[in-house]
Design a protein around this nucleic acid. Sequence first.
DNA 1: CCATCTTCTGGAATCAGTCAAGTTAACGTT
DNA 2: AACGTTAACTTGACTGATTCCAGAAGATGG
Lengths: 148, 148
Amino acid sequence: MDETSRVPTDSDFRQMLRAVSLRVTGPRLAVLSAVHAEPHADTDSIIGAVRGSLGAVSHQAVYDVLRALTAAGLLRRIEPPGSVARYEARVGDNHHHVVCRSCGAIADVDCSVGFAPCLTASDDHGFVIDEAEVVYRGLCPGCSTATS
Amino acid sequence: MDETSRVPTDSDFRQMLRAVSLRVTGPRLAVLSAVHAEPHADTDSIIGAVRGSLGAVSHQAVYDVLRALTAAGLLRRIEPPGSVARYEARVGDNHHHVVCRSCGAIADVDCSVGFAPCLTASDDHGFVIDEAEVVYRGLCPGCSTATS
DNA sequence: CCATCTTCTGGAATCAGTCAAGTTAACGTT
DNA sequence: AACGTTAACTTGACTGATTCCAGAAGATGG
């Protein structure tokens, strides 16, 4: 754990917002804090976390904040099949996800080859590919032992 | 084009249904035909195609048929981020998809390494992984030329 | 401290997909 | 070929996530 990967504080979040030319507001700080605290959180639980720290906040405000922060690159939106949209704070490090078929749990998985293994498709049909998102499916530790 | 890859006929669809112990009904034949005719079709366009060939069919029937055929392995359901669910007839050949960021077009991409390249995650967090789905993002030929 | 532009509020609307109950039709058997 | 069982289809209402809208509140630059 070096200086850059310590748990972010409130003033870190302020700097992150200023760095992307976004105004510093309570809901935005609360959303950043909530997503950093619980990776892969869905919108509903983020709304709950924000209301827990700020009091009454409209769901619309949270949706707007999530969209603004995602567009600014501070958050990443993931949409696992069979689940609602989720957000995470790890951005720009080319990692993927594994989703449990049984309980829907999500965990981060670093790229198996180390660097964009699947970015080079065998036949790209003329598409200009700039990203590859990998979703692994299987059973999480808890569900696999419960089934076997 | 050998014997096994010719365009399937109505009686082929009947055999496919019987092979998986499903009753042969009009809606099911029409759905199979529609998905084979237009790969990556969404539910709405499938409903339209089915009604075009059979007349009045409830949307619920189409949803039921799609679920039954997917569970039986005759169809595969894909859920590209930012799009509704789509269905395709290519099953069991480990291929992936490329999605256009601009227009949402989808094309098939064979596995770049040839055989389940990403199935071996570097750290699987104890998950028992049985499948990897890869979604490439980029611009389709039409959109990339329009942008440049 | 004020003007202005952005953000937040609250409510309504949309859209894909699901639930439930009753009717219809496929298919193995007689 | 008729019968009964059971799966499949119809109808219509409903859920839940997300978005749209118009007005009120708040942040920032001058």
